[in-house]
Write a protein that binds this DNA or RNA. Structure first.
Lengths: 230, 230
DNA sequence: CTGCGTTTGTGATTTCTCTCACAAGCCCTA
DNA sequence: TAGGGCTTGTGAGAGAAATCACAAACGCAG
């Protein structure tokens, strides 16, 4: 099992296990945790937890469970969170500003090192203790400050251009909040967070269950009519 | 193909196609679009586009492509976007405020109808033209204003409690921005957006390619040493 | 009306993911 | 040291998603 590449689906769950483990460590101070318990906290089933963790190695003890501290360390290391990855936010609109001061990032060890925009009205102003710089200074900043993650928080029409500039500056990881598809070379990772897409997906399932309810209702009425006729 | 349940993976892509189609319609005003072109705009491959669309029905014309307006309408209808789904935001911190004034929601037809919190310091204040109300008024508001989507933007410790209240009030769709797992009955849909998890996933892939580069480098040096000895 | 170039729709296949179920292995007690 | 109770680690099978590859069908030109 070791040394096999870790499946994408597993990678996406490791941060959830990490959070659960932190809760266990801080909260109760238990020394070990079972796959069953971890599963409950992460909202998945126990077999999945065990298989996921087995990709990292055999870090559990049969009959006992997983050592909380040890597993915490292993997941942290596997996720590359032992080093820090300075990030830059491009776009200082509503969303950009909220992201710049979002506590969740720093709590997980991510530091916003710089914020950029192209609008003279905001350049030079402070956002979450950082002075907004012009996008033209991006490449320089990436080199000087070792920025390794770019966070796109621009309007959609600017997203591709900003992505190109990030790639050109040597950034290999991009988190895209703009509602637009961005294309990058294969050695660059992009993840997207699209808020309205999430709502649209919810809408689909809601509409569907309502449609079913309506159909069932119609059916019921038809049934009553049939009974009435009988 | 029709009437078969639409796969989850397909549902998640429909909003992306929708956006691409809107671009085509507004931008060029072309009357038809091919799966090839849609694929390019959506960042997927053409076969996937065709298979996805085929779940909705046979809306294309062989040798021609898809009628833009017609397909737009069909996807809109399938996603349930012909009716409106008023949403409520719970939690008026940085993120909650940014979400309340996020243009992307209204552009896609989602309306934030109410915002809630439990902190007396913000209740009664205005956020994006809406007066912040106490969470205790949630159930009432859900009924009166027909709220069908709950957006959780609280700190993590409060997320489950808020989710329970949403469920209790009859909300069937929840979008959770709090970095915490929330459990709900099976008839309720939850989608989560966890910003720092996205960064952790990026970190994993970045760290891995760096590790590979380092190993390759070490290898190269070993090779040179071996050559030196030969 | 025929033939050609184009693009869809979809069976078949491959790949990825989840789940099951149980042997292997650990701890503890006597 | 032997045995019983737990919990892990993982092979095997089921299921979902992605991809392939091609027949079917359309428009148009001659």
């Amino acid at each position: 099992m070791r040394n096999r590449p870790i499946p994408e689906a597993t990678v996406a769950r490791l941060p959830i296990y990490l959070r659960a483990l932190l809760d266990v460590a801080e909260g109760r101070g238990d020394l070990t945790v079972s796959s069953e318990e971890l599963a409950r906290m992460a909202g998945v089933n126990a077999a999945k937890v065990r298989k996921d963790l087995s990709y990292l190695g055999s870090y559990g003890t049969r009959g006992v469970g997983y050592d909380v501290e040890y597993l915490l360390y292993q997941i942290t290391r596997e996720l590359g969170l032992t080093q820090d990855w300075p990030a830059a936010i491009i776009g200082v609109g509503n969303l950009g500003r909220a992201l710049a001061s979002y506590k969740g990032f720093s709590e997980r060890g991510f530091r916003i090192a710089s914020v950029f925009d192209v609008d003279d009205k905001v350049i030079g102003k402070k956002v979450a203790d950082l002075v907004v710089r012009h996008l033209d200074e991006l490449k320089e900043a990436v080199i000087d400050e070792g920025i390794s993650i770019g966070i796109i928080a621009t309007p959609p029409f600017a997203a591709q251009e900003v992505a190109d500039k990030l790639v050109d500056a040597g950034v290999k990881s991009i988190l895209n909040f703009a509602p637009a598809v961005v294309n990058v070379p294969p050695d660059v990772s992009v993840r997207k967070v699209d808020l309205s897409i999430e709502l649209q997906i919810l809408s689909f399932y809601q509409q569907r269950t309502q449609a079913i309810a309506t159909a069932r209702e119609a059916n019921r009425r038809l049934g009553q009519q049939a009974q009435g006729r009988a």
